[in-house]
Design a protein around this nucleic acid. Structure first.
Lengths: 232, 232
DNA sequence: ACAACACAAGCTGTATACAGAACGTATACG
DNA sequence: CGTATACGTTCTGTATACAGCTTGTGTTGT
């Protein structure tokens, strides 16, 4: 909990940047960022009281933000007791990957058909930045490019609901995917190459090929995660 | 809004039935029931104040329940303005069906392999009640049996996340599916037969066959909904 | 008659107060 | 020395108070 409080103290003051933002939204974003990057211990309880003082916001909006994060799987609420940092089991992690395997190929297939030229260009731009980050070993830049990459695809997909659910699935496994690509030195470049293949198919407007590339990509991710979680 | 208040007034007092239930959960269940069965006008604004007095609960837990319902797609929150009854576009309805087409065959496939004998028996029991309800034209009983039917399958599915998301998708389209099977006289019996086919495959532990039956079922639903929404 | 504006009512978002429950600690007992 | 228990602290869940905004109405001016 002290670690989280320190992390929150080091965050920029989003309220000052955009005064129209609701406090609930500020709390949501800051807490989400912290949960994904502050390296907290899974299962650790979070005190609403202490969070609200750390954020300089009253308990009510903080509580609402926590409930939203719970529905996205980043924290778990134990009614009457506490809200804790999500402690996903190996099983539930593999379940998330399974969901992605069902959804993301379809998302990319739809996105390939519907993407505007601007979106395709943005995708190419992003994959290039990802390749640079990969070459220079800049994990943070790579991770951010990865997020943008999938955001563009989600935007391009005409089925907004599908896009939303996929984002949610990716959020749930965010730190785990990071662990995978950051601790396994061969995965970062392999993962980049897999993304490049997806982009190539999208550029050629080959939806089925892009879907298959995504299927391959997530299949590899699943394999890598499975090995890591089973033996490491 | 008056209609909703009347509907809420006619609900049983869940608090008295189970005093351990949190008020937030009571509000959630009562509002969800009302949204699904009170035949409210899509887009209609809901006042937190009036809801809380109608429920006999203060605004705080009602507000939390509304936010949860928003994330499940039953209401829409317009920050700073109001929360309104969901007014799904034709597009978003078809998107939900698309999601179900991606997810439910897989859910049934997994459930078929993992279901216990007890669960299979419960499924058989439910389909029989559904057939009786179909024969007697008891729409309410049919609808309830349908819900239980899918709950059993969701329970049997080892991927809990998949089960959750499917439930969410079904909730979003609940009233629409009802409209479909209740206004189209041929759909009710056809729909029942489609469910029977699914059960038959599950009983034979034929996962692939069950998945295909589900695919057919949702395909028919999509077709029927599409015609209804496009022309009616 | 129509448009613009001012006002009033109601509503949302947030802060705060309070009651009851859960947890940890320290103490008493076997 | 280990265990059970009683107490105090802290927490969650809920109610309520308050400020600012949005909306609809009525009035006024053109």
């Amino acid at each position: 909990m002290e670690k989280l409080e320190r992390y929150l103290a080091g965050q920029p003051d989003k309220l000052a940047l955009n005064p129209t933002l609701l406090r609930r939204e500020i709390a949501y974003e800051r807490l989400k960022d912290a949960l994904q990057h502050a390296d907290l211990e899974p299962g650790q309880p979070l005190s609403e009281t202490r969070l609200s003082t750390a954020l300089g916001i009253s308990r009510t909006p903080v509580r609402e933000a926590l409930h939203q994060l719970a529905q996205e799987g980043l924290v778990q609420v134990i009614p009457g007791r506490a809200v804790t940092v999500a402690a996903p089991s190996v099983r539930s992690i593999m379940d998330v990957v399974h969901m992605r395997l069902l959804l993301e190929p379809e998302l990319v297939r739809l996105a390939t058909d519907a993407a505007t030229e601007t979106e395709v260009e943005a995708l190419v731009d992003t994959i290039e930045r990802m390749e640079i980050a990969c070459a220079t070993g800049d994990h943070l830049a790579w991770s951010k490019a990865d997020t943008i990459f999938h955001e563009i695809l989600g935007e391009a997909c005409p089925n907004e609901l599908l896009g939303e659910i996929v984002v949610q699935m990716r959020n749930r496994a965010h730190h785990l995917a990071n662990i995978d690509s950051q601790t396994n030195p061969t995965r970062l470049s392999a993962c980049t190459a897999e993304h490049r293949e997806i982009v190539d198919h999208v550029m050629m407007r080959d939806g089925e090929g892009a879907a298959e590339a995504v299927r391959q990509h997530i299949g590899k991710l699943r394999e890598s995660l499975f090995n890591r979680l089973s033996y490491g």
